[in-house]
């Protein structure tokens, strides 16, 4: 096994194990911090796929996002308000539904995975990705890019509107 394969299995294990902890643990804060390692693992996988720009964007956005999530977690846990908020267990009915959903999704994923003919591209050195992404965003995907910026603008205006002083 070469180094890249070992790296892949390590990162995949990291992602899956911490992803499982996010779901299983009942402590909101532990959940939030595990999410960090999950995202770090995914960023590592992006690096292995030579999508360096995407990997760094992943780190940048999700670490900031998790920080904000944690602030909400802090506000909801025992340490400040004295109210213990934990994610609860499911009732029997919901449990059956969840298990059935899980089986359906898992089976369909496995079937798709087995029935698809996978083409392995020759691995070749990748050029700088950032200029390519920039060019594509301003030519081929201009509409999507502008739509996303409109969405962000609306979010900012909305936040300012909600936060302003009411006369």
């Amino acid at each position: 096994m070469d180094l890249i394969t070992i790296g892949f299995y390590f990162l995949a294990a990291l992602t899956i194990v911490f992803g499982a902890i996010v779901v299983i643990t009942k402590n909101i804060m532990h959940s939030a911090f595990s999410l960090l390692f999950t995202f770090a693992g995914i960023a590592g996988l992006y690096v292995l796929m030579q999508a360096d720009f995407l990997a760094i964007t992943q780190i940048m956005i999700y670490i900031g996002g998790i920080l904000v999530l944690i602030i909400f977690g802090v506000m909801l846990t025992t340490h400040i308000t004295g109210v213990d908020v934990r994610s609860g267990t499911l009732g029997k009915f919901q449990m059956i539904g969840a298990v059935m959903m899980m089986i359906v999704i898992a089976v369909s994923l496995i079937v798709v995975f087995m029935s698809t003919r996978w083409f392995l591209a020759e691995s070749q050195p990748v050029e700088e990705t950032a200029p390519q992404i920039g060019n594509l965003l301003l030519t081929k995907y201009l509409l999507a890019f502008e739509a996303a910026s409109m969405l962000l603008l609306i979010a900012i205006v909305g936040a300012a509107f909600i936060a302003r002083k009411h006369k």
């Binding site: 720009f53 780190i59 940048m60 670490i63 998790i66 802090v74």
Partner: peptide, 23 residues
């Protein structure tokens, strides 16, 4: 090639450590 972007993204991990320790 993305050195500056990387260094900037990685900078917030320390803040995460602060939150972790503080909490």
């Amino acid at each position: 090639n993305l050195g500056l972007f990387y260094v900037f993204a990685i900078g917030s991990i320390s803040a995460l450590g602060i939150v972790m320790g503080g909490w």
